[in-house]
Simulated scan of single mutants.
Amino acid sequence: MSEETPNPQRAKTRNPWLFDTHELNRRAGSSFHLHRELPVTTTLGVPEVIEVPQDSVVEVDLLLESVVEGVLVSGTASTVTRGQCSRCLDPVSGKAEVNVTELFAYPDSMTDETTESDEVSRIVDDWIDLEPLVRDALVLALPLVPLCSEDCRGLCSGCGMKWAELEPGHGHETIDPRWAALVQRLEETSGGDTASGSDR
């Protein structure tokens, strides 16, 4: 195993998510470790609910191994998240970390020839694109119902205040909607002489 050692002759201005596999040279068993901080150029997730913000970074710690059919990528990816609590709507922040494993098939390999284009990742001109692999894994790992805490009680449906900030015993008197019209009528006629139903 070796660390990443970029070849100056192949270095160029490029997408930082692309990785050059040229040095593996299709030698089965050769491998090296890749550790990078990669930029997030587009917000991932559901904005204002839970997301990986644009302009944040994803830290990847990966092992790339040359196998007969391609390059096997495995390791972890982690990044920061932000959003709002689904119960009380307070801002929340956290960290998402995922395990990733993916085979990137060599051109003209058996895997390349026997699988559809969307069934396996592929190496193109000795380059592999890590972004779809990491992006999809992170999005799937985001919570569907983000919470500021597991015991968050949310908001009072009567006044919209946070239950955590309200006095014990807080509540609102409610009237059965079937009686609401009668209560309104009584309030409108209370104190009126003609509303008593008495004869003149």
Rank of each mutant, 00 (worst) to 15 (best):
C156A: 12
E150W: 05
V139K: 07
L62A: 02
K95I: 04
D136P: 08
L34Q: 07
P146C: 06
L130W: 04
V67I: 15
V52H: 00
E150D: 15
L89W: 04
M110G: 09
T42P: 05
D90M: 08
P53T: 03
A164M: 11
E116W: 13
D125G: 14
L166Y: 06
L63V: 15
A105H: 05
E65R: 08
A164Y: 10
I128K: 05
I50D: 00
R82E: 04
P39F: 12
V100M: 01
P53L: 03
Q84K: 03
L63H: 15
L38I: 07
R82D: 01
Q84L: 00
P47Q: 07
V98N: 01
K162N: 09
R135N: 12
S66K: 07
T115D: 11
E51L: 01
L133F: 13
S157Q: 13
S86F: 08
C148H: 05
E37G: 11
I50G: 00
V40P: 06
E69R: 03
E69K: 03
R153V: 13
A141H: 12
E37N: 14
D61Y: 00
E51G: 01
S117H: 13
T43R: 07
D108G: 02
V124T: 15
K95T: 10
P91W: 06
E113F: 09
S74L: 10
T76A: 02
V67M: 10
C152H: 05
L64W: 05
P132I: 07
V134R: 02
T42H: 13
T115I: 14
T76Y: 01
E97I: 00
R135F: 13
C152E: 07
I123K: 05
V67W: 06
S66I: 12
C88F: 08
V124E: 15
L72G: 06
D151M: 08
T43L: 11
E48A: 01
V100R: 01
C85Q: 01
T81R: 03
F104P: 10
D129I: 11
S149V: 09
L63I: 15
K95F: 04
H35M: 12
L62N: 01
R153W: 14
E102W: 13
L72K: 10
V134F: 04
P91M: 09
P143Q: 10
E150H: 10
E97L: 00
V80F: 02
V98H: 01
A141P: 05
S56E: 10
P39V: 11
V60W: 00
S149Y: 08
D151L: 08
C152D: 05
F104H: 11
G160A: 06
T79M: 03
T79H: 02
L155E: 08
T42Y: 12
L89E: 03
Q84T: 02
A96R: 00
V145E: 15
D108K: 06
G83A: 04
V60H: 00
A137E: 04
G158A: 09
G94T: 05
Y106W: 15
I123Q: 05
V124Y: 14
T114A: 09
A96S: 12
L72F: 14
H33A: 13
R87K: 09
L133P: 10
V73T: 14
A137N: 04
L103Q: 06
T81I: 15
C88G: 09
S66D: 12
D125F: 12
L140M: 15
H33E: 14
E65I: 10
S93L: 04
C152Q: 06
L72V: 15
M110F: 15
V73N: 11
C148V: 04
L34E: 06
V92A: 00
